[in-house]
Design a protein around this nucleic acid. Structure first.
Lengths: 117, 117, 117, 117
DNA sequence: GTGGTCTAGACCACG
DNA sequence: GTGGTCTAGACCACC
């Protein structure tokens, strides 16, 4: 499982970057239901961050139902979540898209110009 | 000058909302060079927010050169800024657009699907 | 707002004790919608625990929709939640009650005996 | 000897579930004094859990005096324990019952309502 | 002053 | 070895 952190102080909390990317990995089928995520400490070490930060990400993923933690055994992708996550992903994409379009309108930016970008 | 605030804790700082909207007003010609902005306290009262917040927005606008404060007289839209703001706006639009496209790619969302949104 | 912590290592995490008791306070009307909770640091100091622990409790309460945090302003009881919490409370009561009864049955404890307790 | 495990991470440690259920079996006469319990490895295999976990359960049962391990021979139900276990069970029932009642009071739940559940 | 994030590291229960 | 909880204290953005 490969995760890339943008530490550029881009105002996105590390733990959310993890949450988001795990969602992506599941939605795109690169993480399959039942598959085990790296142990908290291992992922923390690999990303050179504090275990607490990974733990928080995993906790949020569990609250979303995307992952299930069997204590003392590990953390696993929950069953039958691929579809839900997929629609989730699209929904997550919609608001920023709308905002972008709205912003563009306020700027009177031509549609073609926007598409080029 | 009409400004609408989204206080829904939607992750956009109030002062930035003000900055952005003043830029829009200038770029779209609804605020003309030389025109006076509302006094800090007046705008703060109208928006039911802390005067410090308005002050900060005005300060940022001044640093952008979009506005000039003549002490004890008021805050005025600077001269000949319309064009600069316009290009500013486009630049401001590019990064989120890129991010959106990048996110979409990670989701393997088809381009057509994205354009529809 | 009075909160009592059982530090007797009774296996209930501190942050959950806070969550639970705030729920009780709301459900019983001792905390009214719109009312402000003590700032994280203040409550932490009062309970002689780490601010992070209080923060976690508040975060969970927010995720439950019971509370809303207006950053830099404070933490407030959400509107129109009394009823939901009340039913929540009853639901929270049901499983342990069932477990108790089931356990009693396995012990062949007479019903009267149980009621006396 | 039939034992059912709730692996739903419902906050009850596996080894305690075993301890409890063995107590029930003894108290209810389905396990008689002198009778042999399944070997650790056998029970572990049957329940698909770690042998260490079964070992721990047996150890606790031995500390309670409910069971006695004769090395290299097996684990047997101790003599004359049925009555003790029975009272044990009642004691084990009291604290959760109290907690339940206390919780109910905090919720202002009527007693009749509680009894129905 | 508010809450938010993160670190470093401790201790625990469980398997 | 797994995850869970908690502490102590840092720095940040915002109002």
């Amino acid at each position: 499982m490969h995760i890339h952190l943008d530490t550029g102080d881009g105002r996105v909390p590390i733990y959310q970057q993890i949450v988001q990317q795990v969602k992506y990995l599941v939605a795109s089928g690169r993480l399959l239901p039942g598959e085990e995520l790296p142990p908290i400490r291992v992922l923390a070490e690999r990303l050179v961050i504090n275990p607490n930060t990974v733990a928080r990400a995993y906790r949020e993923l569990e609250q979303c139902g995307l992952v299930s933690k069997r204590s003392t055994t590990g953390t696993f992708v929950a069953d039958g979540v691929a579809s839900r996550v997929a629609s989730d992903a699209l929904e997550a994409l919609t608001p920023p898209a709308d905002a972008l379009v709205a912003a563009a309108r306020r700027h009177r930016v031509e549609q073609e110009e926007l598409l080029e970008i």
